[in-house]
Amino acid sequence: MLEWLSLALLAVGAFFFLAGTVGLLRFPDVYCRLHALAKADNLGLGFILLGLAVQADSLAAALKLLLIWPLVLAASAGVGFAIARRAHALGIAPWRKEAE
């Protein structure tokens, strides 16, 4: 039962990573790509860690896996803001949908 839960969580995590990459390939500018990577990939990692944690040998091992998530989130939040700010400072104009 727990094993199936774990497999399902891992599959969901992989889906979000895929969605992040699809967004990176299809979105028109760096700002939109940042939305895709920052949100989808971090959620994907959260699901992967949770999927492995439910099958961990001990409570401590499970918590250790989950401890990784806030660290990577802090990294993504800081790097993401720095990228957006840099893009803005470089004068990269956001892509706009043309008026219909």
Partner: peptide
Amino acid sequence: GGIQVAGMALRGRAALRPA
């Protein structure tokens, strides 16, 4: 946020209205 942006990624740039 993740679910929303994943849906947009699958629908492509037609789903975007950035500002």
